[in-house]
Amino acid sequence: MTRDASPSPVSYRERLLPGPSLFIALVLVIPAVALVLTPINGQWAIPAGVLIYVILAVTFLLLSPVIIVSDGRLTAGRAEIPVSLLGNVELLGAESLRAAIGPGADARAFLLLRGWIHRGVKIANVDPVDPAPYWVLTSRHPQRLAEAIEAARAA
């Protein structure tokens, strides 16, 4: 009797969720919507503002991309690449991230950025047929992401 090969466990998974400060700032939508709707129907102004807030908050949560290293592949949002086609992984702090995506950046690079995360990784792409020379991903845990990529490449 043979066993079916089970998929390897995920070695890294991170959802790039907005921080609490974005949701706190988003509360300002409630009075803004209420101010606009009060002349039309004051009774529905506050409930409509709360509804718009909830819709925006849920949208931010559902549209947050995920970075996964599993089964020998790196998935960043909708993009996917085998880790065997990745080269050097460089950790980026706030300043080096700004430089990596700034005016000197290659326009062909693959970027998965979220403005509320100020560090990340720059990963060389050694695939000869892929036009993107490197990937830049924001991450709250760039060291763990780099270690997961290295471990997946070694496996």
Rank of each mutant, 00 (worst) to 15 (best):
T2M: 13
T2R: 13
A5C: 04
S6T: 14
S6K: 10
S6Y: 03
P9G: 13
P9R: 13
S11E: 02
S11Y: 01
S11G: 04
Y12T: 07
R15E: 10
R15T: 15
L16W: 04
L16H: 12
L17T: 07
P18N: 00
P18L: 07
L22Q: 06
F23I: 12
F23L: 14
A25D: 02
L26Y: 03
V27T: 10
V27M: 05
I30H: 00
I30A: 00
P31E: 01
P31S: 01
A32P: 03
A32R: 01
A32M: 06
V33G: 07
V33M: 08
V36G: 15
L37S: 13
P39F: 11
N41W: 02
G42R: 06
V54P: 14
I55N: 05
L56D: 09
L56F: 15
A57R: 11
F60Q: 12
F60N: 11
S64F: 08
V66P: 06
I67T: 08
S70R: 10
D71L: 01
T75H: 04
T75Q: 10
E80V: 10
I81T: 13
P82T: 08
P82F: 00
V83T: 06
V83F: 02
S84Q: 12
L86V: 04
L86Q: 05
L86D: 04
L92C: 08
L92Y: 06
L97P: 04
A99S: 07
I101E: 09
P103E: 12
P103K: 13
G104W: 01
A105D: 04
R108M: 11
L111I: 06
L111E: 02
L112H: 06
L113N: 07
R114P: 15
G115T: 14
G115Q: 15
I117S: 09
I117Q: 08
V121M: 05
K122P: 02
K122R: 05
A124V: 08
V126M: 03
D130N: 11
A132V: 05
S139I: 13
S139T: 14
S139G: 09
R140F: 10
Q143F: 02
E150M: 08
A152Y: 05
